[in-house]
Nucleic acid binder design. Structure first.
Lengths: 216, 216, 216, 216
DNA sequence: AATGAATGAGACTTCATTCAT
DNA sequence: TATGAATGAAGTCTCATTCAT
């Protein structure tokens, strides 16, 4: 009756890891990366401190994985949003809209991913994933420039500026808005104008209205 | 005699306070608010730790004042930049250009003021001063809208978006640029288009070229 | 059938125990008793940590047994070396030579057995086995004294001093030697003189040259 | 009334440092370097944990200094003992006698200095100081060899062997002795014979009888 | 019987703050 | 008034041991 890593155990382990990551992300979501503390996370997950170290080499590794997962989720949501038919500008609009909405719903998390001071290990993740993220905006911008529908501009810088504009206005520490939808619309218009697509901004009532699934 | 003594003392106290604030800001400039540590600051200023507590109630108070002074300096620089003759858009352009350049020269400080996680006490300062800061952009935007040279838009949100766009693209953790002047120009154009002044963007060689005095 | 089953099981259990002890000793050999960690040993042996506790009550028990086996092996090697024909001094020379060579080949292990700080449980083992070990030297010394070929001396103390002299000079933390054989010879001469057999030291080329089998 | 580091404060600081080093050494003296724990030492010294770190960079630094001081004291005692008039052998005898007595009085400390496993930082100290220590024995041995009163032998190895012989027989984990003076005498004789000075060993009642001051 | 996931006591270290000088 | 010595709460990480599977 030798020990076998049963299906059940494996599932439980995966669940524990998941639990830890969820607890960790919940903390980050509420208080940024400074709030990701081993003891707290362990307690939140209903586990012992030592257990955390069975699943993650150290605090930074846990933080890096929280970062990675959250960012990948954002990237996935963006990619999905961009997968609509239409011109580069239309798709950019969709992407911005989704990004904006998500930032609005989880502002502290958005800031954490975009601007929180983090350890070098996590910073590396940031560089990696942000490049990935910005890349999608960049590609659209380049398409738009090629087709002549967007004026020439440094795509990389514009992409970062878009991220900054949305994040700061909707999820920044001083952000404030009465009506969420209006804020999203306004930021989208701001961004589209910013990249030079102002003329083609659809009417407000034609704005993309996608459902958002924050766990997706 | 007694009076002069008092005055001399008062002057010395002011100088000590100044020293501490300078040392503290230098740290923030290099490593954000996390780098503002009492012992380090005291040592940098050539003073004792206890002395810090004679001039500031606690670490947060010191941080708040560093924050305040730095922001006030930024506001002053902005106000000065906006004090040029010309249309709202021209002045906005000047303001953005100055803001961008300053962010570029002191990126870590810019991030610290705009996005670093801080204690509630400092966060209050942020709210106060950022409102002040954005107000100047807002006023110009409102003027532009009134005169019809800018399309209608929520001024507050646009102002924040401008700050975010500049900060993230020039001073953000992923910011990267080969040529500083070009980056500044590009961001300015991005911003002017964003607020709807795209058509009136001056040629690059007509861009405002102001000297910057970082201590000013 | 049932009997053979039992025997097979018994053999397997013995093999597992052996595996653990081997892995544990390997660690001690490399890093002393501090390097004997349950998790490491289990992993090295390709077994689970829980399994370790099936075969040993706790860490100290495992350490004690590692200690015992290693010391017994040393004692056996010594006894074998002493089982040569010849005078007490000749045999002592053989013994020292073997001891020295073994210490030289496994210095960290030698230090672990002789000097590493260990738990009281293991310390008890040390006392027991070291007495056993020294006993053989002691016996020879006493024979030598009786026969008049060695001057009177407290045999127990001399025996310990011999162990210390060899261990420290060949396996001590500051030990250093260019040529192993010469070092062994030199220590042997040192020891023989120490016990008062200086005059009878054989020429270097007549030194005993025994094969050493470290697993034996 | 500017703060001045008064004589009194300076003295108190020195006293605190001393207190910490004493407490630390006391622990080492009782339980080896493993017993040198920050919390324990702080408590023993009647100080807070943080205070330890005002005086020592970290645990290893404290350990290194304990090591250094203790070893320097041993070296000094040895040097003083060797500063008697007489032949190399006479002086060697004095030195061994002092070394032996000190090892006997503080056996755990002696073992800690000579054989305890320590961090690389402390190990470096060991190498440095042991070389220093052995050097004195070595010099005498070399003098003896030159003058023909000692047979040729590798001085370095002999010196280490002397240290090992004394330490193991008097301070080793298995050391045991009814009469301290006799043990010291016996070891000295053992050592003198070992280096080839057997014939010149003074009568037991002519053995050097130096006072020992362990704090000296 | 074997396993390894879970545990938590215990060690180290940092840094804001206090207080005697 | 200025100082910096002293403090200890809080955070990270390790590793022997237990226990459900």
């Amino acid at each position: 009756m030798a020990y076998r890593e049963t299906q059940r155990v494996r599932r439980r382990k995966a669940a524990t890891r998941e639990q830890l990551l969820r607890a960790a992300e919940a903390r980050v979501r509420a208080g940024g990366f400074a709030a990701l503390q081993i003891q707290t996370v362990a307690a939140d997950a209903g586990l012992g401190v030592g257990t955390v170290y069975r699943y993650f080499r150290n605090r930074d590794s846990l933080a890096a994985e929280v970062f990675q997962r959250a960012t990948e989720r954002e990237v996935a949501a963006l990619v999905k949003a961009l997968a609509v038919p239409g011109s580069a500008i239309t798709r950019l609009h969709h992407g911005l809209s989704v990004f904006a909405r998500r930032a609005l719903r989880a502002p502290r998390l958005a800031r954490a991913l975009i601007a929180d001071p983090v350890s070098p290990e996590v910073e590396a993740q940031r560089l990696h994933y942000r490049r990935d993220y910005a890349c999608h905006f960049r590609t659209l911008l380049e398409q738009g420039m090629e087709s002549g529908s967007l004026p020439p501009q440094p795509a990389e810088l514009s992409a970062n500026a878009l991220v900054g504009a949305v994040a700061e206005s909707l999820a920044g520490p001083v952000a404030e808005h009465e009506n969420e939808s209006e804020a999203v619309d306004a930021v989208c218009r701001f961004c589209l104008r910013a990249v030079g697509a102002g003329a083609e901004i659809p009417a407000a009532d034609a704005a993309p209205s996608l459902e958002i699934n924050h766990e997706g």
